[in-house]
Design a protein around this nucleic acid. Sequence first.
DNA 1: CATGAATGAGTTTTCATTCAT
DNA 2: AATGAATGAAAACTCATTCAT
Lengths: 198, 198, 198, 198
Amino acid sequence: MTDSKRYRGSDKRRQLMAAAAQVLHRQGVERTTIADIANAAEVPVGNVYYYFKTKDALVQAALAEHAGHLERLTGELDKLPGPRERLRALVGGWIDQREVAARYGCPTGTLAVELDKREEGGMDLEAGRVIRLLLDWAEGQFRELGCPEPGDLALTFVGAYQGMSLLANALRDPEIMVREGNRLLTWLDSLPGAQELR
Amino acid sequence: MTDSKRYRGSDKRRQLMAAAAQVLHRQGVERTTIADIANAAEVPVGNVYYYFKTKDALVQAALAEHAGHLERLTGELDKLPGPRERLRALVGGWIDQREVAARYGCPTGTLAVELDKREEGGMDLEAGRVIRLLLDWAEGQFRELGCPEPGDLALTFVGAYQGMSLLANALRDPEIMVREGNRLLTWLDSLPGAQELR
Amino acid sequence: MTDSKRYRGSDKRRQLMAAAAQVLHRQGVERTTIADIANAAEVPVGNVYYYFKTKDALVQAALAEHAGHLERLTGELDKLPGPRERLRALVGGWIDQREVAARYGCPTGTLAVELDKREEGGMDLEAGRVIRLLLDWAEGQFRELGCPEPGDLALTFVGAYQGMSLLANALRDPEIMVREGNRLLTWLDSLPGAQELR
Amino acid sequence: MTDSKRYRGSDKRRQLMAAAAQVLHRQGVERTTIADIANAAEVPVGNVYYYFKTKDALVQAALAEHAGHLERLTGELDKLPGPRERLRALVGGWIDQREVAARYGCPTGTLAVELDKREEGGMDLEAGRVIRLLLDWAEGQFRELGCPEPGDLALTFVGAYQGMSLLANALRDPEIMVREGNRLLTWLDSLPGAQELR
DNA sequence: CATGAATGAGTTTTCATTCAT
DNA sequence: AATGAATGAAAACTCATTCAT
């Protein structure tokens, strides 16, 4: 009973987070109303405020959702034997997501752009923090790969992802994800560090 | 009088375009009110509508402004003797603009992200068109350089720019523009096509 | 033309101020909505914000209205030959207003009570300022009358007014204004300072 | 258990009344939410409604609390030998409370002002009733003192208290309580009725 | 063309009150 | 009784756009 209550409660909160993540990604922060999120989560509008005090809090929740997704993803990737394979698998995922990228862009990247303009709430850097999660993970892989300047490589790598997502989105062309994704794969293969026997 | 009025008129129009370009870049489309632009242009609010029927029209004007700026820029670059120099000069400009990029991102890129979410007015692709101007110009340079697949190279090149701008902005770190800019310079130098004696 | 415009403009502003003063007095700050004031002033709701940026600004305008009224009143009283007559006339006015006082209290006093609870906007003391106008005027009269400690007398005098208004209002009994008003008149007559030949 | 619950229950009720009295005094009726009172009373929000059906009921409870406090106070004062001493002691208490008065005004007086604006629930006069308790007690003292028109004196006396509290509050000046309080003490001493040998 | 003013639809947020357990 | 959660009806405020002159 207590448990089912707790569960239902958390459940709604989770529903709202998931809905926020999705709707905010698709419609953008400014074009999304609380009502939009409430509808998507099938929750009455007034109730949203029981879980999230402000719209900003919902945005942050969406960001946390993306961070969680990213952590789950890298967690999965970490199970792969070598860093090169992990990075390759990540790129593979990006290519697989090409339709979404072409339609809505990278969730975190577009959020970063929008939050940058939102002076209030000091959330300017929140999206950057999520992006840094990816940067740090990538840096770790490059380091493990034995590359010099793994930080710079990570920057190039993640930058390429953000760039190709933005272009695919701006030009509404998923093929860009494929072309640039494949280039990244080739690039990964060319990296010298590799003593791994593959 | 008629003439001076005409002149003042187009003057106002130009002021409005310039103001729109700047303010929209800094504040974002959704956070910018017509009044903001009118103030920045020192034009009375009610008057704006004689020059631009809707806010969307103003956004488009800002986009045109950015396109114009880009064309002027590439026009200047075209005066340089070789394509590699031109591309290098372009990258140099990006690095020079690092503070602006870190604070507000690439004007066209961020606009593209925002317009993507703005269903109305079918301006989704307008920003893409401006980006394509750059893509096309870059492709021309890579072709002139004798590179194979100049279109792909242009994509990589412009993608790198968008990516590094986004990261610099999201992390509020202008140094990213320097690091990635220098990488691009090295990359440009390494391109095989170069028969130019330098 | 320009003038009629100006006039109409100011006119609406004035209408709003007057409406605000009246409605806020009757309904209290918290129970009054912008729509209430807009209706009373026969102005569309959205338009109110053209003249007053926030509800607080409207409250302040109402306070200014009361201050204006008070200044006009003391201005009139100042035309009377002696200070005692002026003070007596003021008390007479209070008695005349007994029905309003019993129904809604003293406009400034009740506003002071409400604003004290409104942390935001730092308007805590705005009502106090209006009250001090009356205090200062009364002090002047007592001084002119040759009384010692005219400041203390003013405090007693205005305090009596606030107290009797509050009681009349709380008990909904206009007669309290009469009884206490008459007592004040007697008290004024008894003040020693009077060398005036009456 | 039942007993301890019952105890806890009425305990909670009392806690809520005390919290309501205090919080409503400090924040005002309209600015105070049920949650505020619940928090102050350390009672879960949803639980409040077992003790008080509506917010109005809580307000009434607060008034009852103030009435109780007043009755306890006059009960204490009644132990003093003579009416003049009792009235003097009361004034002394007012002076002692000067800081609270300057910050939040007289609990009952401010409540009266607010309730006057609250059409619903017909509580307009509830605060008046509490004030009348004080009036009646004071009238009794003046009568015992042998004064003519003890009702009018009570009105003057309590009116002075309400007036000085309001002024002290509006001007945020506790000294007003001292000055006017001392004046009241002198006035009390000057009352003729006193055959008491002091 | 110019311009201050007008307008109304939309958005976030608050809260008293009720409900399910 | 107890309690976290639910709900909807306001209310303040914003702003693109239109209007009257």
